[in-house]
Structures are given as C-alpha cells and as structure tokens.
C-alpha cells in the first residue's frame, strides 16, 4: 500500500477487488459513456489511496480513458473529495441551521480544543482532520458528524471523547 502522502506513479494500482468493481461499474453505462463512473471511482480512489493527488487523478483518467483535466475539474468541484492530504480519521461535523440550533457550534469548538486544531486542519500526528460540512440529512438527529461511511448522531461531548479515545 502506498503511503498517505506520496503516490509514486509506479506503485499506483487499485486492488484486484476494486479493479473488478470498476469493471462492473463502467459496464452500467452505454458504450463510450464510461466517464459516468467517474464520481464513484474517485470515491474508491480516495478510500484506497487516502487522497486525490495528481498522480492518483492521472491514474483514474487512464483507467476511464478520459483526459486528466476532466478528472481535475470534477475532483475540485465536489466537496467530498480531498485534493490535499488529510488525516487517517476525518471528522466531518455538520454546521447547517438545524444542527446549529442543536449545538453544532459548541461541538466544533469542543473538538477544536480537544485536538488542538482548527476547522480544516489535521493533527500533527496525521491522525485526525476536522472539517465542517453542510447538511447531511440527519437534521432530526442533530448535532451530528460523519466519519467515513458512518453517521454519528445526537452527538455529545462524551460521545466525542469516546470516539477520539477509540480512534487515537
């Protein structure tokens, strides 16, 4: 597995399992429309390589037979993609209205203090990144944060403490 921060061209290769999945995904679109799989493939790339560096995006472009610039355009437009290195664990706390009125701002400050970082930063050990995000469709279970594919709802300071201890 290539390390989180460098993606030497030669080591860039999806796992066999992911390559198989990508073949299935591209087959879901008519001939010549394989670009439609791009968003999903970028999610897979981020999962496997940590973040979307230029070599990663070039690799994805080659796989889908499109120009690198078509990948860069998409990777920079959508907020879920990281085009800069991030920590191993990314805490994405919702900051939008319904979460705000249930105390999202306090949760963010609490995490900032606890980890000694600000919104958008990564801890020195490269472990945690904090990012505020917009409504994630959990407004009735606020405040909330997303970590990977998991939603952590009805957040409290105790829950944050426990989560950080478990993932340190």
């Amino acid at each position: 597995m290539p390390d989180q921060h460098n993606h030497p061209e030669s080591q860039l290769q999806f796992s066999d399992e992911t390559l198989k999945l990508i073949a299935t995904l591209t087959a879901q679109y008519p001939d010549g429309k394989q670009k439609s799989a791009l968003l999903r493939v970028l999610h897979l790339a981020q999962l496997e390589f940590g973040w979307l560096s230029a070599p990663v995006m070039d690799y994805v472009a080659r796989l889908l037979h499109i120009q690198p610039v078509e990948v860069y355009e998409v990777a920079t437009f959508y907020s879920m993609y990281d085009t800069k290195p991030v920590g191993k664990v990314k805490l994405e706390v919702c900051r939008t209205g319904p979460c705000m009125i249930e105390g999202a701002e306090k949760i963010v400050s609490y995490i900032e203090q606890k980890l000694g970082i600000k919104d958008g930063e990564t801890t020195a050990d490269g472990r945690f990144t904090l990012k505020t995000v917009e409504c994630l469709g959990a407004c009735g279970y606020a405040p909330m944060m997303q970590v990977g594919e998991h939603y952590h709802e009805h957040l409290t300071e105790e829950k944050i403490d426990r989560f950080i201890a478990d993932n340190a």
């Binding site: 439609s36 968003l39 999610h43 959508y78 907020s79 879920m80 993609y81 409504c135």
Partner: peptide, 8 residues
C-alpha cells in the same frame, strides 16, 4: 445506483 460527491 450511482453516487454524487457533496454538492447541493
């Protein structure tokens, strides 16, 4: 089924 990537 196909995903977006964070854009309202």
């Amino acid at each position: 089924v196909t995903p977006g990537a964070g854009a309202y």
